Every structure is written in structure tokens, then in C-alpha cells.
Amino acid sequence: MQTLYRRLLRLMPRLGVRVTDLAPGTALLSRRGRYTVKPAGNDAWLVLKGPSKAWTSVPLGESGAQLLLGEKSAADERKLQMAASEYLCMQHVTAMFRLYGVNCVLDVGANHGQYAKRLRRHGYRGRIVSFEPTAEAFARLSKAAENDPEWHVHHLGLGREESTAEIHVGWNTMNSLLPASDYGRDRYKRFHTTRTEEILVRRLDDVLDEALDGIDDPRPFLKMDTQGYDLEVYAGGGERIADFVGLQSEVAVLRLYEGSPPMGESVATYEAGGFEITGMYPVTREAATGRVVEFDCVMMRPKALAG
């Protein structure tokens, strides 16, 4: 005898609703056949908009994960790799947060809040303290954080010394306290024109107590994306750098800014502070040569796991 559920499903096509039976008690309903279903392994289905033949499910080794590729995915290898790298970096970072018990992220060079939003999408619910010195970007950052009580924002930059400074603006996500290098100007048209804005700069060790206020047993993580200025931010941490269980820094293989440190110098400085690499993820690559321009370098302090 048919159940009421099954009898109702049989009526759906008469109403212009397509029914795809997936399993006992489970069905996909779609208007006018706009969605199709493709098996993706045991007890799993891919719900696709468009013809299913346009998509390929690729197993990721023995992890059990599947990568869904469209017909055009492989046409731009660099774009696909960059998107995958960003996702895998954030997945790795949040996994390290769980392993090391991170409960506060200092997001230095926050821009519009992109990094913090990614952390939230990947499940991190602890405190985020974002620092953004430029007025336009800070206005957007404040808007992004306004409904998140655990996301605090500060209108300032961090560096080696407390001061005021001139930052190059109008470069979108690439505003920097450093001038563009010859290589940078050749690569990005946005560097051909610039204006400057006066900003306030403070030391990391001067803002850390406020950032951690109210957190029992703070386990902070330092994320830096300051367009060539990360080592200056790090230097401003002084002895308080030892309080951090991990960090993420954008390190340059091909330098976009005059005076920015090469990757080897940056990594060696962080290693001298007790941090060790857990992941390296390309941020940008040259389309013509395939060379990596910058990496996101994730490092943790293994001794922080003790106890």
C-alpha cells in the first residue's frame, strides 16, 4: 500500500514539479526540470543547476572528498588553482585553530573584512580583532562587523613604532605603506597612479592586552596581510610575540613593493621566533610564466601544544 508521501509525490508532475527519487523518504523537487541529480558516491548526490553531463566529480585521493568541476573549470588552470588554494588555506587555518585552541585572531591589514568573513564561513566562532588604517576600507569593515559581537575593529595600522605615516591608497586591496617596485608597476596598472592618506600606526604589543581583554587563557593567532609590511608589524610585537600560538603572513617570492623583505628573510625571522611552517598556499601567480608571486605562509608554535 502506498504511503500518503508517495501518493503526493505522484501528483507533483501535474503541477509542473519534477520529482527525483533519491532514497526511501528522500526526494528532490524542482520546478520545470531546472535541477538535475548526479550520484557522487555512497548515499550522496550532487544537485546541479543545468545539464548533469556538464559536470564531473573528481575524488580527492583517499580523503573521501569530491571536487565538482564544470566544463570550463580546466580551461583556466591558474584561476582554478588560486580558488582551490584560498579554500584549502582557510580549511587548514581553522583546523590549526582547533588543534591549538585558538580563541582570538588579530587580523592585521583587514581591508573590507574578507579574511574574517572566510573564518566565519569555515566555522570559527571565537574573537576576531581587525585592524585597518585606511578610511574607505575601514568604513566597509565596520559595516561588515556591526552584527557580530565577537568581531572588534580598529581604525589604525600596526608597525615597528607608534607614529603617523603616509599610506598609498587607491590600490584597492593592495594599499601599502611602501611604494610600488618596478616589477609591481609592470604587473599592475593600479600602481601607475596613487594618492596618500595619513594614518595612525601603533605597536602590536601596545594593543594586545585590549585585544585579549576578557578571554580566559588567551590563545591568540596573528594574521598579517599588509602588502610588504608584515615584518614591521611582527617587530612591533616585541617580547609579546611569544604569546601567539601561530601566525599567517603573506610572503613574497617576487616583490611588488620597494623595501619589502624576500620570502627567505621573512620565514627565517618567524622561525627564529619559534614558529614552524604548517602550510604554504599560492596567493597570486603570473599568467604568462606560472611563477608564484606571493604565498600565504601558515606557521604554528609546536611548543604551544604542550599540556
Results as ranks from 00 to 15, higher is better:
R125I: 10
K143F: 00
R125A: 15
A137L: 07
E146Y: 01
H112F: 02
L141A: 05
F138Y: 15
G157Y: 06
R118D: 14
V108H: 08
D107V: 03
E150S: 12
H154P: 06
Y115P: 04
A135W: 11
R140L: 08
H112S: 01
S142W: 00
E150W: 11
H122R: 13
I128K: 11
A137M: 09
Y115H: 09
L156G: 09
A116K: 01
R121L: 14
A116M: 06
K117T: 05
N111R: 06
L141S: 02
R127I: 07
H152K: 09
V153G: 03
P149A: 14
A116C: 10
R160N: 13
R127W: 04
R140E: 05
K143L: 04
P133M: 12
S130A: 15
G123M: 13
G159S: 12
G109S: 07
L119M: 14
Q114W: 14
L158D: 10
Y124E: 07
D107R: 01
A135C: 06
R160P: 09
H112C: 00
R121P: 08
E136N: 07
D107F: 00
L158S: 04
D148F: 05
R140A: 02
R140C: 00
A144L: 11
I128Y: 05
S130I: 05
A110N: 01
E161D: 11
K117G: 11
R127L: 12
R121F: 10
R120W: 03
G113N: 10
E161Y: 06
Y115K: 05
W151L: 12
L156M: 15
R121C: 14
N111T: 06
P149M: 08
A145I: 06
L141F: 01
E136D: 08
H154Y: 13
A144D: 04
V153A: 02
H122T: 08
S130G: 10
H154M: 09
T134M: 06
K117V: 09
E146T: 10
L119I: 10
A135N: 08
V153W: 00
V129D: 12
G157D: 05
R121E: 15
A145D: 06
R121T: 13
L141R: 08
K143D: 01
N111P: 07
S130T: 08
P133C: 09
H154L: 07
N147G: 11
S142P: 01
P133K: 08
W151M: 12
L158C: 04
N147A: 12
L158H: 04
L141D: 00
S142I: 00
K117A: 14
H152A: 10
F131Y: 14
A137I: 01
F131W: 03
L119G: 13
E161K: 09
Q114E: 15
R140K: 14
E146N: 04
P133I: 10
V153F: 00
Y115E: 06
R127M: 11
D148E: 15
A145F: 04
S130V: 03
V153N: 02
G159K: 13
D148P: 10
R160C: 13
A139H: 07
V129W: 10
V129A: 15
